[in-house]
Write a protein that binds this DNA or RNA. Structure first.
Length: 193
DNA sequence: GGAACGATTGAT
DNA sequence: TCAATCGTTCCT
């Protein structure tokens, strides 16, 4: 396990979205540490009608236009938060939405936070994993590559042994046809089939 | 100032 | 299939 560097996030957003599969998202808090393996992502590009950045920079999406390797967190449907990682270079509004994790560590804490005992439903959706890992809106803009950050991402040292499925994204009304959703083939922890 | 909408989830 | 629930964005 080694922490991801800034250069990891500086690449094209679709590339980062695929490279993030199999990596480990680590969240430390007073309650304990939770870790999940990233098994599903979606990319949102600057010229993509489904992207929050499509109409230019605003207060909400400002992190998408900032440096790569930062947390872009947004509030949605009046009650949930979703977690993204910023990508590409500064000035280009792009990010990868983390859609699902396979719970690895701190599973009891995740169960408590999510108020369910069902392992397969702990992190099987973008808002679910934010709750399970205790990610807060205060983490907006956090540098995920910094040594002492509360939330970080690590890559596995072993060779990746899985196939990646590329398909259409979920829950959007525009840009429906773009194949910007990626997940590990055969994983039982994806958000939807 | 006002209104419509949404990168979701969980219950029915 | 549908309600919950409210910040963001866009229109007037």
């Amino acid at each position: 396990m080694k922490p991801l560097s800034k250069s990891f996030f500086k690449k094209s957003t679709n590339e980062v979205a695929k490279n993030l599969l199999g990596c480990y998202l680590v969240s430390k808090s007073k309650e304990g540490t939770t870790i999940g393996k990233i098994i599903e992502t979606e990319s949102y590009l600057y010229n993509d009608p489904a992207s929050h950045s499509f109409n230019g920079k605003t207060i909400r999406n400002e992190a998408m236009f900032g440096l790569p390797g930062r947390a872009y967190i947004y509030f949605t449907y009046g009650m949930y938060f979703c977690f993204n990682v910023t990508t590409n270079k500064k000035g280009i509004g792009e990010a990868v939405l983390i859609r699902a994790l396979e719970p690895i560590k701190g599973i009891n804490l995740m169960k408590k936070r999510r108020n369910t005992d069902n392992l397969h439903q702990l992190c099987s959706g973008p808002a679910k994993l934010v709750i399970a890992l205790g990610i807060k809106k205060e983490d907006y803009g956090l540098d995920l590559t910094k040594e002492n950050s509360r939330v970080k991402i690590f890559s596995q040292i072993k060779e990746k042994k899985f196939e990646i499925i590329e398909t259409k994204r979920i829950g959007i009304s525009k840009g429906k046809e773009l194949p910007h959703r990626f997940y590990i083939k055969g994983s039982k922890f994806i958000s939807r089939k």
